[in-house]
């Protein structure tokens, strides 16, 4: 029994290849491979027709155009049925005027949610918690966020993480605490004595010391 439970709990880690799936969604059957070449935000919610989830879906729909500009597709998931997802999306549009433009996985079998470690029995044995998986265009997991059932997600933080990941990939730098687009970025620390001596003399870097230097991109 314990062994069975252990095999059911899968927690993918950063840098892992995202687990494959072949899922029923509100936009038809979708496989992870269908998203090849795009970044994906795969997120789970506890249940359709619930208040916090409804505010989150509206908020995800609102940042959808910003994500599209960044080459990111959105994909929702819960263990509700396809009919429930369709009815809920229609209800959100009818009551708030916000159309849900992204697909939602109907994971009744929990196949996808278990593969991604979205069910946390300490929170709920039946529902998925609020997970966010940011998966890059090579289908590697780059960020995982978990929020409890009672706390709605912060969309600006999700956008900020996407910006930081895409910017650091493109420029080989890192981002300091509370970084936002346009702020100075961190230059990787040198790994030799000579490099450290040269680093502090760099005129265009703002250095606290050799290991902590920032520059404007």
């Amino acid at each position: 029994m314990e062994e069975n439970q252990a095999t059911q709990v899968s927690l993918p880690r950063l840098g892992d290849k995202a687990p494959d799936f072949d899922a029923v969604t509100t936009h038809g059957n979708l496989k992870l491979d269908d998203f090849k070449g795009s970044w994906i935000i795969l997120f789970s919610h506890p249940a359709d027709f619930t208040p916090v989830c409804t505010t989150e879906f509206i908020a995800f729909a609102e940042i959808f155009p910003d994500l599209q500009k960044r080459g990111v597709e959105l994909l929702g998931l819960s263990v509700d049925s396809l009919s429930s997802h369709i009815a809920w999306a229609r209800n959100v549009e009818e009551k708030t005027g916000v159309k849900i433009p992204f697909p939602i996985i109907a994971d009744l079998s929990k196949e996808v949610s278990l593969a991604y470690g979205m069910v946390h029995p300490g929170q709920s044995k039946t529902e998925t918690v609020r997970c966010v998986f940011i998966i890059d265009d090579k289908q590697v997991i780059r960020t995982i966020l978990y929020y409890p059932l009672s706390t709605g997600r912060n969309m600006q933080e999700i956008l900020r993480i996407v910006d930081a990941l895409q910017m650091t990939d493109a420029n080989g730098v890192a981002t300091p605490a509370n970084w936002n687009p346009g702020d100075k970025v961190i230059v990787p620390a040198p790994n030799t004595q000579e490099g450290a001596e040269e680093r502090v003399k760099q005129p265009d870097y703002e250095c606290v010391d050799w290991y902590l230097c920032k520059k404007q991109l």
Partner: peptide, 10 residues
């Protein structure tokens, strides 16, 4: 593109 790939498969 993901919808095109899925649709073409069907």
């Amino acid at each position: 593109l993901f919808r095109v790939r899925s649709g073409l498969r069907d």
